[in-house]
Amino acid sequence: MLISNFKRFNMKRVDAYLSSLGYCSRSEARKFMKQNEITVLDKRVFNPSTKASHKDIKVNQEALDSEKLLILLNKPKDYICSHNDAGKLIYSLLPKRWQNRNPKISTIGRLDIDTTGLILLTDDGELNHRLTSPKKDIKKIYEVTLLNPLNGDEKELFSSGTILLNGEDKPLKPAKLTIINDTLVHLEIVEGKYHQVKRMFAYTKNKVIKLHRVSFADTFLEDLKEGSFKELDINLFID
């Protein structure tokens, strides 16, 4: 009896799944189910009010999208991490169905319009909050191209934890600088203050001319092409 009750508790209407996962709106579900093969336990259904478990539903012989998504995307330049601003929005790079999910997919943190590289997106609000919390010290690594050669003392300065940027009331946490050459470096930080990397190098009287994030929370782009994305196992990020 307990197992049976548990199964019923985890069942929802088919149209609720279809609308929350972006396949169609609830008002469009009946039409969608006529035009597409929706099956529950491999038996086709037409009634939007049919109740089922997520794992038992297929759309045109394919399993439903994950109930919660975590996406790794290689952000190109000139895309904006916003739902509402004018211009090219990062969400336009995702499948239309994912753009229609409820709750919406949002970026985990942001990258500036001229910054490229790794960004995570999710519709799991709790995960998003956890990975953007200042208390978590989430590691981020950037490849930084500089206008001028390094002064020579940046590695020690950034790791000292003594830099106080304009407008801030606390010094930055220690950061790790890896020098590739005198105008190309990797910078590892655990904060996400406004324009932080650019402001750190401005503090040394230098200027960032290209910024590319190569890692976030121990995930890497690897061979993912610019503008491309892949789904990650969200369970790897859940404590």
Rank of each mutant, 00 (worst) to 15 (best):
G227T: 00
E154F: 04
K51W: 06
K173G: 08
L165A: 03
P171R: 12
N148G: 12
A217E: 15
I180S: 13
T39A: 07
I180K: 12
L118E: 00
T116H: 05
Q61P: 01
K12D: 14
N84Q: 10
I80F: 05
D124I: 11
T115L: 01
L165G: 02
E28P: 05
D153T: 15
L93T: 00
K205V: 09
P103V: 09
R44T: 10
R199A: 09
D218Y: 06
K75D: 04
H129V: 12
Y79D: 03
M1D: 14
T107R: 02
T183V: 11
T178L: 10
L21I: 06
S20R: 12
E222N: 10
I141F: 13
V40G: 04
V190P: 03
H186G: 12
C81I: 01
G161F: 03
K43E: 14
R97K: 14
I238P: 07
Q35Y: 15
D65T: 11
T178F: 09
T50S: 11
F201V: 12
P174T: 02
K205T: 10
E28T: 05
E28W: 03
N47Q: 14
L111R: 00
K193E: 10
T145H: 07
E126D: 08
K96Q: 06
I209Q: 11
C81N: 00
Q99I: 04
I90F: 00
N148W: 13
H129K: 13
L131C: 01
P76N: 09
F229K: 00
E226P: 02
R97N: 12
R101G: 00
T183D: 13
S159I: 14
G227R: 00
L221K: 06
